[in-house]
Design a binder for these strands. Structure first.
Length: 291
DNA sequence: AACGGAGTAACACCCTTGCG
DNA sequence: CGCAAGGGTGTTACTCCGTT
């Protein structure tokens, strides 16, 4: 089985799952004969989340493997602006079947209306912790709270504009745009994408007496949000603790190959090994340059 | 062909300045 | 007060080239 075949097989199975969830007459349904209107809000939410996650993952894999399969239950890959999307007859019908659902459920669904506003995405996550008027003893405390909210939503934060002891902005790391530079030799131009999407999501805190108060907040994004796994893989969340830096430097100085060192770290730490092979290379190279 | 390593362009982050 | 632009600095990841 080729990777492309494996991928289409996965898409096929996801489509079947969607069909089962939709069809109340299907004996194999996990919905115990309920029509979709009988589903509770948490059930809607759960289904929507899983579907969204699966769709995003498939989108990524299909893009990586450049799968354009015009057959099958066929996920057709459509080029939309700068994004590549997967759509299937099932997902379209599935989503349209929620057109008349209760208002309270709509925010959880990826409806047509939602798609049209894809450049105005506001996460459906509890944001009480960053309400306007909330106060914090320190900026660090505020940053922690905003970071926790960001993690739940699927974006990273960075510091934005500020005036010392007056105000401080914390923003989505997709804030702003990349400064273009003139490259004399175009052949040296690198194919590197930026995470900057002119995102407007931010909170602004102002100092009031000894506290920092949230005075402004904008929570909508101009880009797709990331899954927890994707967040973990972003540069900001990858770091090599000093203990392992020293261990790697020592092993490398004894002639151990970086790949072997990384393999040992991954075996030992599993999920806790947040950094990649490339990060290890960079660290060792930097160490050598500094020495 | 695959891997390892070196060099460095381009990036993210954070800050200051200045404008409306 | 809010925002954009630009500079400084450390980091990330792309490309090339030698080695296996």
């Amino acid at each position: 089985m080729t990777s492309a075949q494996a991928l289409t097989s996965i898409i096929d199975n996801v489509n079947n799952l969607i069909s089962i969830l939709r069809d109340p007459n299907d004996n194999t349904t996990l919905r115990t004969g309920k029509t979709y209107l009988d589903l509770s809000k948490p059930e809607y939410e759960k289904m929507s989340r899983h579907l969204s996650e699966a769709s995003r993952a498939l989108n990524k894999i299909a893009y990586d493997y450049k799968v354009i399969s015009p057959g099958l239950l066929t996920p057709s890959i459509l080029k939309l602006e700068d994004d590549i999307k997967i759509s299937t007859p099932q997902t379209t019908t599935f989503m349209s079947s929620f057109q008349d659902i209760k208002e309270e459920v709509k925010p959880f669904m990826k409806t047509k209306e939602h798609k049209e506003h894809k450049h105005h995405i506001e996460p459906n996550v509890d944001n009480e912790c960053i309400n306007i008027g909330n106060t914090f003893k320190t900026l660090e405390e505020a940053a922690d709270v905003f970071e926790e909210y960001a993690r739940k939503c699927g974006f990273n934060i960075c510091k934005g504009n500020s005036k010392r002891d007056v105000y401080q902005e914390f923003a989505c790391s997709a804030r702003g745009k990349v400064r273009m530079r003139k490259i004399p030799d175009q052949s040296k131009q690198r194919n590197r994408k930026s995470i900057k999407k002119m995102c407007k999501c931010h909170v602004i805190l102002r100092k009031k007496d000894d506290d920092w108060v949230i005075t402004t907040r904008k929570l909508h994004h101009t880009h797709e949000l990331l899954s927890i796994d994707e967040i973990k893989k972003t540069a900001k969340n990858r770091f090599i603790p000093d203990e392992f830096k020293l261990k790697a430097i020592e092993l490398h100085s004894k002639g151990e190959a970086p790949a072997k060192i990384q393999y040992e770290f991954e075996s030992e730490l599993g999920e806790r090994c947040t950094w990649s092979m490339k990060d290890l290379y960079n660290m060792l190279y930097r160490y050598k340059s500094d020495a």
